[in-house]
Write a protein that binds this DNA or RNA. Structure first.
Lengths: 187, 187
DNA sequence: TTTACCCTACCTGTCAGATGGTAGGGTCAT
DNA sequence: ATGACCCTACCATCTGACAGGTAGGGTAAA
């Protein structure tokens, strides 16, 4: 029971930030959602910046775990790579939300330093995983896997952003498909 | 002399929104920047939503004009296509800012309806232009130019987002380069 | 040409609501 | 009796919005 509030705040904040960004987070609404009072959140997180950093850190930790689980489940690197866009697709499925860190990349100028750091780590985690799987798949010349990983990450994030602005998941699917046709993603 | 304030508000709002989004716009700061009082902005724009829509509309109008000018200046479609990412690069050069409509795509849930409409038009303008130039360049099978146009638009927007989150223009350049290597953009 | 009227552009003053944050106190398990 | 957890009650600040006023310029009937 004890640490449940903290966890609830964390996951409510995550959901909210995926729809409204860091700026859209506020203690009162968060508290209402969790069922405690706004001031009580300060017991778990000394400031909004701390909450933001904790949420973002948890976000990339979860993502890293998901990606590793996916690779364990689908060891064939080409098939696994094929599933990568699903990670971003799921946010859209979940109420037309988007990647927390893409949103925060937009809000970059207004982010506390600690939050910026976690946002960058999210990108690092994705690029590292993609780079590893690309290498294993040998779809790309060795030494080219990291630039390609970055390109895939950026392009998929862009596809999510555009699809969100139309509330249209099929647009996301079409974009990923076009990336494959064009050769950015392996077929 | 008369309509100068309105224009000043419009361009100040554009600069601000490219760094802080629609949510980052506020009448007082805008008024300070322009040199009038906050309430006076209501003389030109009846509400924040109206201001937001006007700014966004002006933004895609300017972009459309820029793209057309570029095509007039560089009629060779392949060479012109090569210059397309520069449109997005310039925002980064200008104080690590980003595309107004990419930012607003993230803020989509909190946007007034009139603003959403203009944001979508911005995407339409870009895709239409890219599609036209892709067709002329015959780098893509006919019928494939529009999906490819969308893919390029989304990918370039994603590259800008990632580069912004690192305040690193050379990362943007590297991403565009990777897109070319991968075959998404013509070399 | 004077009087009456209207328009544009901006101002002062104010308000209600939201926001991040603080002080200090209560409850309950260990 | 100590600390984890949560509360009530505030506060300062910011925000979009509005009411009402003013200064200057144009228009037009008398």
């Amino acid at each position: 029971m004890s640490s449940t509030s903290r966890e609830s705040v964390l996951s409510a904040a995550r959901r909210t930030a995926q729809a409204h960004g860091y700026g859209g987070l506020n203690f009162r609404d968060l508290a209402d959602e969790v069922g405690i009072k706004a001031a009580s959140i300060y017991h778990h997180f000394p400031s909004k910046a701390d909450l933001g950093a904790a949420v973002t850190r948890r976000y990339w930790e979860d993502t890293a775990a998901n990606l590793d689980a996916m690779l364990a489940e689908t060891p064939d690197p080409v098939r696994c790579l094929r599933r990568y866009p699903d990670v971003f697709r799921r946010s859209l499925e979940n109420g037309n939300r988007m990647c927390l860190c893409s949103f925060m990349a937009a809000e970059y100028d207004d982010l506390p330093e600690a939050v910026k750091k976690e946002v960058q780590t999210f990108a690092d985690v994705n690029v590292a995983w993609l780079s590893k799987v690309l290498s294993a798949a040998t779809v790309v010349n060795s030494g080219e896997s990291e630039p390609r990983a970055r390109a895939i990450f950026a392009a998929v994030a862009g596809a999510q952003l555009l699809a969100r602005s139309r509330s249209d998941i099929s647009l996301f699917d079409a974009l990923i498909d076009s990336y494959r046709v064009a050769g950015l993603l392996p077929v």
